[in-house]
Amino acid sequence: MNIITDTALEKALDAKMNTTPLKMIGKDVSVYYGDKRALFDVNLNVRQNTVTALIGPSGCGKSTFLRCLNRMNDTIDHCRVTGLITLDEQNIYDSAIDVVELRARVGMVFQKPNPFPKSIYENVAYGPRIHGLARTKSEMDQIVESSLQKAGLFNEVKDRLNEPGTGLSGGQQQRLCIARAVAVSPEVILMDEPCSALDPIATARVEELIHELRANYTIVIVTHSMQQAARVSQRTAMFHMGNLVEENDTDKMFTNPDDQRTQDYIMGRFG
């Protein structure tokens, strides 16, 4: 895998990592779906301008934790979240926090590409329109163009911005969804297995994109693929049966993990 990135920037960011401020802090986070407890007192921090990968077997709670970070769990009936999650030292479950504003700051890309049944342009313009980010048509054009550019999609679609977003290929659709998330200028981008519905080539493009986005955004990614976690992330957190097993630098995690279960999972003994 040949990932083209700004290596100098990469190195600088890596060196700074242990001193980088914490963007989000999760403390004793527990989630209940009705009577069933899905997460048990998870303590996990997200560092600024870092890609944090959440790994673990199916049903281990990694997606649940991800969805806590922008309160998408609120949309699920009977779901209850306890504990403390902060964004820039502010409790996001505080009643003073507007969930709509929170989601504008913490964007999300989903497992399955889910472009709206609108044109490519309208898909990207959707968020900025809602939040009033552009005052004129030309400003909106600019936001759409730069977002598509950041998502590495602009050159492929610049001649057909008015065609429906659902007509793109799977990989293009997912990059369109990333562009849509980027267009709102979030601080954190959550990605829930963004490549699981994509072929290897489209996956490589999205992974490359994640590397580029790291410079400007904080990224949390849930993935099933150990290789993907190793390729794209700097920090990795391993979940198992609703518990956080281990959180560590990705390099260390994949070479010399602290926990036996992590080792077993990475070696493919379960999961």
């Binding site: 922008n70 998408m72 949309t75 709509v100 504003e101 929170l102 989601r103 504008a104 700051r105 964007g107 999300m108 989903f110 399955k112 889910n114 472009p115 709206f116 049944p117 959707y126 968020g127 809602i130 939040h131 969804c177 849509r180 998330a181 709102v184």
Partner: peptide
């Protein structure tokens, strides 16, 4: 997925 996509953008 449509709802999630929109809500996830802060709508």
């Amino acid at each position: 997925a449509m709802r999630d996509g929109s809500l996830g953008l802060g709508a």
